[in-house]
Amino acid sequence: METTEAGTQAATVIDAHELSKIYNGRQVPVKAIDGVHLHIEEGEFTAIVGPSGSGKSTLLHLIGGLDVPSSGNVVLAGTEITKLSENKLIDFRLHHIGFVFQAYNLVPVLTARENIGFVMQLQGIAKDVREKRVQELLAQVGLTDKADCKPAKLSGGQQQRVAVARALASRPRIVLADEPTANLDSVNAGNLLDLMARLNREEHITFLFSTHDPRVIEKARRVITLVDGRVVSDQHHA
């Protein structure tokens, strides 16, 4: 179990300064992210919203170290990831960041159980510890009975739940989810969000996710709105 300082003084997980990303588009350069400051503390459950093309994915990629900013920096759990070499960055992601993408998150040749265990194996965690944790996570996402199914045999909602479980498997400081519900119907989308919210509450896992869906936005405790790569509002809900 992760020791959190929730209740006393919450630790800063993400600290982004003056973050910009310019794509050299076809005709004109596109400012996908334009001078964003972002401060996220341990245990937050934050949604990034905004119209299509507003830069949500780009922001998550920059924070997760999948992409490099044109300027500005990102400090994640005390490490300035924008300064890390490519190999160090991969290793940092392995240990500190969990990802959930919109779709095709899972390795198709591995079962649900193996997909979840895989990241821990990359971390070099002992087999017995690993198996126990996988079992735990499968129970938490309610897929114990589908443990030995390959992704193709799982529904979209089930696949996303396995993806969430995998994101948590490495015990990251933060889980970044880019439109995790975009390919799900409203019932499954609601279920996935409830699952994420529960894990956030019970395990103090910090979630940062992007979405379009108003019903998903409702469940967030903080909503950051992006327009044209700028933060136009940042609201905390009770």
């Binding site: 991969i90 992601r93 895989f118």
Partner: peptide, 16 residues
């Protein structure tokens, strides 16, 4: 391509 991208995202290094 996508799958390899996901593997890299979750922390599978280049050597692997």
């Amino acid at each position: 391509v996508r799958e390899i991208g996901v593997l890299q995202s979750v922390g599978m290094n280049k050597r692997r």
